[in-house]
């Protein structure tokens, strides 16, 4: 499962990097979203992958899932959500003010 998760993170990151380097605002926003998905998954996995183990102390359990990465990833998700909303509004504003959706405000050559 570790291999599968790392492949997913890798694919998400590379898609994110590729899209972030595009010239139009919509792919850039999508790319930033992919990057934040990748990093959220990465943070979660940093607590090691476990199945069926509780994050809080319980009777008769020996292994525990690390609760801290889950808390961290929750914070990161909220922040990236807010940032995505902001950057979408900003991209719309740029589109309206500059008349096109190029990140430099230029027309397609």
């Amino acid at each position: 499962m570790e291999a599968l998760v790392s492949i997913i993170i890798g694919v998400l990151t590379s898609c994110g990097v590729y899209l972030t380097l595009r010239g139009h605002t919509f792919p850039v926003v999508l790319g930033l979203t992919f990057l934040s998905y990748a990093v959220n998954l990465f943070l979660l996995v940093m607590g090691r992958l476990t199945i069926g183990s509780p994050p809080i102390i319980a009777e008769g359990m020996s292994g525990y899932a690390d609760p801290l990465p889950q808390a961290l990833v929750l914070t990161a998700i909220v922040i990236s959500f807010a940032m995505t909303a902001f950057v979408i509004v900003l991209a719309l504003k740029a589109h309206l003010e500059m008349g096109n959706d190029h990140v430099d405000g230029k027309h397609k050559s």
């Binding site: 990057l35 934040s36 990093v39 990140v103």
Partner: peptide, 30 residues
Amino acid sequence: RLKTKAGLHFVVINLVGSTMFLFAVGILYG
């Protein structure tokens, strides 16, 4: 217009920076 253009660049580069920050934090915690 000029503020929006400069602002867009500023926001995008800083969001990429934030992602890198989280990757670094994740590695250190892991």
